[in-house]
Design a protein around this nucleic acid. Sequence first.
DNA 1: GCCGTTTTCGGCCCGACTGTTTTCAGTCG
Length: 599
Amino acid sequence: MPGTGTNQQVIAMLDELVRLTTLDEESPQSFKVRAYEKAKLGVEAHGEDIGELSAAQLTRIDGIGKSTAAKIREFIDTGTVDKLERLRAEYPPSFAELAKIPGLGPKTLKLVRRELGVEDLDALRSAIADEKLRALKGLGATREAKIAKAIERLGLTGKDRRTPIAEALPLARRLVADLEAVPAATQAAYCGSLRRMAETIGDIDITVASDDPPSIMAAVVHHPEATEIVLTGDTKTSFLTSTGLQVDVRVVEPDQFGAAILYFTGSKAHNIALRQRAIDRGWLLNEYGLLDGDDVIASATEEAIYDALGLAYVPPPMREATGEVPAAAVSAAIAAAAGDRTGEAERDPDDRPLPDLVELEHIQGDLHYHTDRSGDGRSPLADMVAVAAAKGWRYLAITDHGEDLAINGSNREQMLEHRERINALQGDYPEMVILWGCELNIGPDGGLDYDDEFRALFDYTVASVHSHFDQDQVDQTRRIVRAIEDPTVNSIGHLTGRYIGRRPGIELDIPTVLDALVANDVALEINGALDRLDAASDVVRRAVDRGVKLVINTDSHHVSELGRMEYGVLTAQRGWTPRELVINTWSQDDFLRWARSRT
DNA sequence: GCCGTTTTCGGCCCGACTGTTTTCAGTCG
């Protein structure tokens, strides 16, 4: 995941500080808790290794002050933090894990501990069985029963349950389509971390615009996916699906839709930054609009709200409070001062605008694409080429598996015969160059299929890992770098080989890999398959910082899979990818010139 | 605990829903 090993450990340490301090201060809104959360975001956004930074240097990271800097240094130098040790002693894991129970917050937890001596899950269960919770101040039989039920379903609906985007996104799109079809609805959209293209999500947030909220609420409550209603009010209903995934639906007035989706898309930290800008101007920003007293400044669209706040529009995947708000302010200032040279000269060189972000309509071709020549391919060559041409692609690389991939691969004779069939099709598609390519298999030591001479015959190659996922980081890094250095390799496919929520990817020293990509002018793939999204957006952002070339692919194995390009582009946006770094946004001439310079 | 071209102290985002309450605290997002 993001950052280096050291950064990951620091982030985990800060996360534990957040959780235990929430318990200690009895509020997730405690200023200390929020300070630690902000520090965590700062480390995540930093990207580069912080292991060698002094305390003074650490305080230059956004959200890290003197105290947190000292804790981070203490943690890196000694492996632990005194304050964390004290919190752990006060709130041992068996007690702290009770905070995962939905509906049981820090105040109630401490009350239960103080009044009933509850120290772990077993004790909590007995207290409920003995009907002791209902006697406590502020509780009753109803809350006692709710907590009992939440415990029963802990594994299914607990607060730290995460659902892979590949499971959640198709469901969310179905729900949005169903709700948009309700006559009372004028618009609907999924929001939350799903709209930001997070790899895993906690719940699905859907916003519906309507003048008739009761009709929408009724449609939600009776939706076939709503297995269990968690709560339902005038404008908000939450339900659980049969798999325990929570769906929150909110209804707003049609002219408040922009403010609502802005609010519900988050991230929370991004919203706070926006609200701060509103406060600075004497305004109020909430899910109903940007308000100056009783006057509505903007509410119908997200664009109008960003504009009123002096910000360029920030695409949802970038809304993680990792520098996009200041960058959007710079972009807006540049736009406002367009032509005004003096204004631009005075800009602080550190104040960078938003990148000229890659968008779906920039894409000119797909460069990781299978046919039924591959054992796992499911559509014939002619069909795969036809749907690609229908997309309007100007170039397409057919990259069936090389011979080293057991069962799915093709030997030399099969590949040469494949080339004939591809060349025969070319005449039917004058607008689209069809490349005879190959998905090479990166062996355990970095070796590739066939031999140097045969590999050099291909018009284009993508080299990927498909096996040996458990080598250590040093070996895996050496393996990938060796493949990158091979002169017949154009690009590296699905960098880590992960399947989100199912299989972790190989461990890599990312800076070393990125440096090798730059040095050898090899492109890094952003694979649009929802269960891969590999390279991950945080790796992409670090690649962008180094000027690594990128390529966004569908890795299609069937004619139905071309829609993945959108997910690849959104992942690229989440990694702040500018259009010019993405080789498959280039013109046909520019792309072919680059591809041929490699082989 | 962090932060500052209106501040080095006094602020720190905002609202829905529920259950237990007669006006609000807790939880959640």
